[in-house]
Design a protein around this nucleic acid. Sequence first.
DNA 1: TCGATCCTGTAG
DNA 2: CTACAGGATCGA
Length: 268
Amino acid sequence: MPELPEVEAVCRKLRPAEGARVIQMRFTRPSLAKPQRASRIEQKVAGAVIQQIARRGKNILLWLDSGDALHVHLRMTGNLLLVPDVRLRSVGTRAWMELEGGRGIIYEDPRALGKIHLLTRDEVDKKLSAVGIEPLSDTFTLEHLASQAANSRKPAKLFLMDQRHVAGLGNIYAAEALFRARVHPQRPIGELRKPKLTALHTAIRDVLAEAMDSAVAAYAEPDRFNEGESFPCAVYDREGEPCPRCGRKVKRIPQGGRSTYFCGGCQK
DNA sequence: TCGATCCTGTAG
DNA sequence: CTACAGGATCGA
């Protein structure tokens, strides 16, 4: 689930926990904390107050009154939820926190590829210094994108998925943005001229903004399945289906060890 | 810069 | 059974 829009939606759902004190924290899958020690994190988080919940790219930060922060990365299948009763946690739970008053923050992750670390301010700063610009902020200008892209031979899709350039795009929205901008995923990003870059800049912002609306709407409902609310993909996971623009068949190619979907007809 | 790796679930 | 998955890191 989690690219920028979904991670943002998760943060919004957690925000009512701001100001709450943590009674206890437990890892039911200690390897999520690696290379840190899960037991040490449990020990240090117990008794702390969650002051602020923030997002940077796909990174989630739970700032504590101790000055440290719990850094959570959902990776492929992670999810965080705030529940009214911490005892209601399910079998997919990999870690959990009991809050004052009985509420709970639950971390679920079927594949258990996610990460939960306890970082100092300095460690957070260092971590985030490697993260690129927020694509939905005012600072993400065409000029900024152009300067990042200049002189790079990296294939456009891999460039978009590289968190050091633009933070928050993943396999789905990178593909969707390229489709809208009519850019071929293997095209070296540095070859794009002003008009194409402009289209790509717009496409990134539009795709993410629309996906954000879907994600927030879907997550707003108290945990029921909202199939209809999800973002309508034009090409992602649509191999063999007709392109909604030109009707040619959507293709799938491997790129960076992942699948890229695109239309060979209109993405050049 | 690329492939292997971390894990488990599900679809074909 | 194999292939693949909305991600990122590490070592060659």
